[in-house]
Each structure stands twice: as C-alpha cells, then as structure tokens.
Design a protein around this nucleic acid. Sequence first.
RNA 1: GGACGGGUGGCAGAGUGGUCGAAUGCACCGGUCUUGAAAACCGGCGUGCCGCAAGGUACCGGGGGUUCGAAUCCCUCCCCGUCCGCCA
Length: 427
Amino acid sequence: MLDKKFIIANADLVQQNCEHRGVKSDVGRYVSLETESRQIQQEIEELSRQANAVSKSIGKAKDDAEREQRKEEGRQLREQKDARQTEFDRLAAEAGAIYRSMPNMTHPEAPIGEEAHSRELRRGEHEVRPLGFPVLDHVELAAQHDLIDFEAGARIAGAGFYFLKNEAVLLELALQQYAIQLLVGEGFVPTITPDLARTEILHGVGFIPRGPETQIYSIENFDLNLVATAEITLGGMYADQVLDAEQLPLKMCGISHCFRTEAGAAGRASRGLYRVHQFTKVEMFAFTAPEQSEDMHNYFCDLECQIFDGLGIPYRVIDTATGDLGGPAYRKFDLEAWMPGRGESGEFGEVTSASNCTDYQARRLNIRYKNKGEKGTHFAHTLNGTAVAISRAIIAILENCQQPDGTILVPEVLQQWVGKDRIGATE
RNA sequence: GGACGGGUGGCAGAGUGGUCGAAUGCACCGGUCUUGAAAACCGGCGUGCCGCAAGGUACCGGGGGUUCGAAUCCCUCCCCGUCCGCCA
C-alpha cells in the first residue's frame, strides 16, 4: 500500500508510475473518491459526537419523560449517521479497490519499460565458457545418475512433481546447510517456517489466493494456503507488531517448501526441474528503518552473488524493468545462472530474486517501529531475497559441473555435506 | 476431537451497561534531590484518522447483533491455557 497522503499530494507522479509498471489504475478517480469520502467521514464524526453527547445526558436525566425524549433524539441521530455511513462505505469500497491495485513507487534507477528493458548490472566471478564436449541437460544427467524420478512424481501428484533421489537429496541438504551457515555467520536469525499460512497473511504480503489464475494452492475447508515462498511466513511473522528502532535492521532467513500452481505457465520453457509445483527454498528477509533499506537491498544481492560465486557457477545480475516488477517491489535484482543444457546452446535462467518493498508490504501487514522516547510509530521497510532456490540451483550445478566422462563434480563448498567430490564415479 | 477457563495499553493486571480510552504496578521520558549514581519524591506517558490548534472520532482478539448508550449482554469465528482422548 502507498501512503494515502502521498497519493493525494502526488497524483500525477503516482499515475505515471502506474503506467511505467503496466498497471491500469485511475489515480484521479481515487483522489476524488477519497476527498469526497473524507468529507462524509467528517459528517459522520459530527453526528457521532452529537449522538454520544445525547447518550451521556440520558444517564443524568432527571425524569422519565426527559429520558424518553432524549432516547428518541439519540435514535434519530444514529439513523442519520447510519445513512451517511452507507454512503461512505460505498465510496470507500470503490476507492479501496483502486487503492489496492496501485503498485509501489519505483526506484529512480530502475529501467523503465517491459521485460526486455531489464538491465544487466554485472557478472559473477566465473565466466561463461564452452565446456568443450557434448553437453547434457539436467534431465538427461539426472536420468544417467538416477537422481530424479519425474514419472513417479507425476504418478503420485501429477506433472510438475518429482522425487529427488540419491545424490540429489544430498545436494539439496548440502545447499540448505551451505546457505544457512553463511547467513547465520552474517547475523541472520535462522528459521524453519510453516509451509501453510492464512489467507490474510498472503494478502498482506501481496499474494492473492483463490482468484482466477492464482499461483497459490489453497486447502479445502480451511482458511489455509500452501506458501509459494517463505517471504509469506517471514513477512507475516511480525504482522501487527511494533518493533523498537534499536532492533533494526532485523535479518531473518527461513527454510520452507514452496508450492506454485504455475497457472498460465504451460508451454513456457519449463523442462525438468525448472518450473515445478514444489521445491525447497532458503529465503532471506529483513525489516529495516527507511534509510537502511537500500543498503540492505544491495547487501542481499551481494550475498546471493557470494553464494553462487562460491558454487562456481557463472551468472549475471539483472536490474528488473518496471513493467516486470511485482506490486510490492520498489526495485528488484535477479541473479540468472548460466545453464549450459538450457535452450540450443545454453541460456541464463533465473535463480534468485531480491526485492526492496520499502514500506508497501509493511503498511498492509501493519509492521511498524518506534524510536525510543519519541511519540508515534513509523512503517518499517521490508526486503526479501532468495538465498537458494534448491531446484534451480540443482539444475545449475548438474549442468555446469558435468565432466567429459559423464561424471558431475560436486562444488567444493558442498562436499563436506554431500560426502563425496564427484557424482557417478566408478568406485 | 471433547470439557472448562481466558484474550484489555510496551509488559503485568483491574474493570460485568453510562461519569471508562480504561485503575494500579513495572518499564519508559522529563524534573527535584545528589560530587556522580541508586533510592525517594513530583510530573508526563497507547494507536490510527480529521484539524494550524483547541478539540473531535474510532479502536479493549476478528466479524455481526441488542441498546439512546457496549471492554461489559447475545451470536459467530480465531487464538491462548489446563485437563481428557487420539497420534508421529
């Protein structure tokens, strides 16, 4: 949510921002509805004031006749108030719909335009270079080494589900360890979060369950949804809380399973593990004061780079264009890892995403902070970033670390947890 | 899943139809005292919205209802505690 005062004072800016982001929002209509409803709000408050005064006087009335007369007076005032309230509710509902459709404002340096305008910021420390032998993709590699059973997954739960097997399991656990150890060392509070969350929390974070084209699985007969990311649970963790300014910035990380329907994604490049209905992810999340969020955003991006540099995987960092930003994001950096088996002769594929949501999520979730000895509260800023999305990291590892003899080298940083340095070596 | 008891300000905890946005204690902020600190004492101290301000209005887990008037009564949902049942 944007600040209502800000919208009214900067309607043109907000309208322009909506256009840059490809969101149809009638900001002018919103401003006039808001102005009108505030007028009515004033009337309602005045009627309430009068009615309250009448009610108070009844307790002190000297006889029954006066009491009855006062009661009637009170009834009439409340009726008038209810009528104005109905009108107010009508305007507020229309204003609210427009209000909720408005995306966050955008960082001035974010590239403007559709997805194609997204800008490459930099590359990782490992260069993309030809492997120099016929390359297999992760599906073929997994089949060769019996690492993933897509058929069994489909039998159990449908297309898009899979069993990880053998070293793929060890890789998943190793990636979790690797990421969590690194983040704990950086002062993040580690968590394992619920995999389900209430609808209210999803809304606060910016997800819309149970709608058409929703990405969210919902549980029948319960107000519960399978989370699409631990961003939902970590953001919800401090919903309705007032934090002390000294606690900020507060850095959390969480392991969760992620469930996505991938509605509307049929036909897009999504072979194998790339676009699946369930995967595990280690997510970073931070609550900061406003002046800290930009640094935190860069820090998240640096950590993501550190993680993929450590794995020895080439990648590029993308500054996402306005047209491709989700509603809550003020700016978003994605890491795209090189996947040699993707497409004709290798392609970059998104593996992480770090967003600065400024106070947009915090307004919805009602997460505030308070300066010691100061009156009032302020909305915190929230940020989220992928540490490791396991399924896509596995794609990148299998495809980048494959060897001419068909074996796969385990990245050195993971070897202590995988327990071997190579997959497929004949012992 | 069943029975009972609860959900009130940052925390603890009173309040069962009007004078209650709400006692009291702790915490916190300011002051007096002190060489300094502690203690003691005095004063202040919830959040949102409207307003330059005075002030007004809304909020006692969420939603709905009764009433001139609800923290207080009724319905409903959620959550917490205790005991029982079931269970990895």
